[in-house]
Design a protein around this nucleic acid. Structure first.
Lengths: 225, 225
DNA sequence: CATTTACAACCAGATTTTTCACTGTATGAA
DNA sequence: TTCATACAGTGAAAAATCTGGTTGTAAATG
């Protein structure tokens, strides 16, 4: 899951980020109005955690911006303002939920998952793509009845592929999704090849068709032929 | 005791909440269909007080939702509808009791405690997972017939694992659950390793299979192979 | 007060994963 | 065809993470 945290207070930012990163999510942050708008404009997130009081501009403006450029990203407002009016304003502008500071991280997480679940209500947490079955809660992958043992990156990669099946995905998009901010985009992340190769190998060895099609010079496509 | 009150009329809501809070309970409220469904989906309550006439949707739907997502939360319907049919409908759908407005708060309280007591008696306080039996009231653990002596943290850990069996649990989730607020999430709580290790050892020594599977880079999974 | 116990911290070694360098092959453009 | 580049495959170094042992400390117990 990819999360953007828009929050200026650094200590809170740290702990939230640590928490969600530990949970295995990709987290990015923005500490002020400008960089928030920038990120929101360029990338897509499963959920955006938005603090309302920001240096350089009002948080509500960011919310408006998100909703304006369509964006189906989930938005959870976290704010110290606890008046009903603030709450209603936020929700009316299209936020998915509103959480008053201070809060427990577990509650934050619960609400985020609730938002994400609501957004993409697959019903279950089992993702299925032909013979591939992924149980996202158990983090287990099956090919037919064979259980596949995948490493973290391989797993993320597979989930990403399936989520974007039949679409071309560039290497940099993959890198962005698997590594988030940490990656230096000027790098030649050739190690993606390795992960692709390993995933491919494990899938094929488990009797799965090779859905990963290389698009020379562009990237890959997880293709349902 | 944790209680959820689903009620749209604010004055009644206030008085019930005040009453139960004063009694030392944790109370949450939902005033409409949407937020009710949400809370019910996210959290667990000892007892849910459900008003049938709600803006935005029928209360019976909420009841259905509760029962659908398993949920062993107790449900007490409070409603102005006093026909026998309404009563029967509710009880048939799995509500534990039905109270007709208006009522005395003391009666409400009596019924709530009755429900909770009933739950915790017949609703087994024995958790069983294969050969592992936990008596939550006695806080004792048995492997088959062997009694296990666990420390507090080990016990909590085991219960948490069993409650989340076959799901991956991250270290930070465990930390949050076992230590709550006190934990500094920027820490690398390596001490979890120790508790995992100790629990594992005691379980295995008592002749239990090692269900605790490490998910490298993610956390652990209590797995029923 | 002495002793035991539970918990947290530390450390060394093992294990697993990730990254990186290198070689060979395939592809598309000139 | 030739050439530059992209990709696949191998293996090994580097980094991250887990395990098990041990130790210090504070709290609980007797």
């Amino acid at each position: 899951m990819k999360i953007l945290l828009i929050e200026d207070e650094s200590s809170l930012r740290e702990s939230i980020i640590t928490y969600f990163t530990d949970e295995g999510n990709i987290c990015e942050t923005a500490a002020d109005y400008k960089s928030a708008i920038e990120k929101v404009n360029i990338y897509n997130y499963d959920c955006i955690l938005l603090d309302l009081t920001l240096p350089g501009g009002d948080g509500m403006e960011i919310l408006r911006a998100i909703k304006k450029i369509n964006k189906k990203d989930g938005v959870l407002i976290i704010s110290a303002r606890h008046s009903l009016d603030d709450k209603l304003d936020g929700l009316n502008l299209g936020a998915d939920d509103y959480l008053v500071k201070p809060f427990h991280l577990s509650e934050l997480k619960a609400r985020v998952t609730a938002i994400v679940r609501r957004k993409s209500y697959n019903g279950s947490n089992i993702i299925t793509f032909n013979e591939i079955h992924i149980d996202t809660q158990a983090m287990s992958v099956k090919i037919g009845d064979n259980v596949l043992i995948l490493t973290r990156k391989e797993y993320d990669l597979l989930v990403y592929f399936i989520a974007n099946h039949n679409k071309v995905t560039t290497k940099s998009a993959i890198a962005e999704h698997l590594w988030g901010d940490e990656i230096d985009l000027s790098d030649h992340f050739d190690f993606i090849y390795t992960h692709i190769k390993n995933l491919r190998k494990k899938l094929v060895e488990a009797g799965c068709k090779d859905y990963i099609k290389s698009m020379y010079g562009v990237g890959y496509k997880f293709e349902n032929v």
